[in-house]
């Protein structure tokens, strides 16, 4: 490796990648939990609740993620009800969770509704209540159908963590850019921008490609089951 690349790689991997994975982990866990909950509730035939969740899903799916993150990070703290101050990493994670949970809610609704009504009826006949029925019978089956979209979501979320760089998070993309700037402003003044951006593309590809293949594999298994 050329001399300039060593500290750049070290900085990008230690600081950048760790922030990227951290945001992605928060976002995936949050999106899954909130999304599965909302998606399951969406199958209840209670109009006001359905309308409310629909609105949530349509708004956060409709907005560009960057705009959601700007709303969360810049506009939300001006609301007097928000006393807790959160940093840029949390701001980005919340923005991604709003978007991701809307995706998961939609997928969950489809998965839950794909479970035959007989399953509901059989579980009810066994004496399960609504919660017990969903927890022990419906959701475990729906989860199997949900797995491929969840893995795709993980790949998507990891890619979208780069948007956090626009509100000042030093994630992988930002560490690459700070390195380009440092190299450009110090002798001999070669920014190596082409190499660094290409390396960034390669790094994301290495993370994302196995995940998208896994999603396709799981999808195929599901069909063959």
């Amino acid at each position: 490796m050329p001399d300039w690349a060593d500290p750049v790689a070290h900085y990008m991997l230690h600081q950048g990648l760790s922030a990227t994975l951290r945001i992605a982990a928060y976002a995936v866990v949050g999106s899954t939990v909130i999304g599965v909950l909302l998606g399951t509730l969406l199958t209840i035939r209670f109009r006001p609740l359905q309308a409310l969740i629909r609105l949530y899903v349509e708004v956060w799916r409709g907005l560009p993620i960057l705009v959601t993150i700007f709303l969360v990070y810049f506009a939300l703290p001006t609301a007097p009800v928000i006393h807790h101050r959160f940093g840029a990493i949390a701001g980005a994670a919340i923005g991604l969770i709003l978007w991701g949970s809307a995706q998961v809610a939609e997928a969950t609704r489809g998965a839950v509704q794909s479970i035959p009504t007989e399953q509901h009826e059989a579980a009810a006949a066994l004496g399960f209540g609504w919660i017990g029925r969903h927890k022990s019978v419906i959701l475990p089956q729906a989860l199997r159908r949900l797995l491929p979209p969840l893995v795709s979501l993980l790949a998507n979320i990891i890619q979208n963590t780069t948007i956090a760089s626009l509100i000042g998070v030093t994630e992988l993309l930002a560490t690459g850019q700070r390195s380009i700037e440092r190299l450009q402003l110090t002798p001999p003044g070669d920014s190596h921008a082409f190499a660094i951006y290409a390396a960034l593309l390669a790094a994301f590809f290495c993370i994302s490609f196995p995940l998208t293949r896994l999603a396709i594999y799981l999808e195929r298994r599901l069909v063959s089951l």
Binding site: S18, L21, R22, V29, T170
Partner: peptide
């Protein structure tokens, strides 16, 4: 597979919190 994914996510989260790089 699900368990492995959840574990991995949790591990990343924990690592991220503990990593010195998290805070400048």
């Amino acid at each position: 597979v699900v368990a492995a994914l959840v574990l991995a996510a949790a591990a990343f989260a924990a690592w991220g919190t503990a990593a010195p790089g998290g805070k400048v």
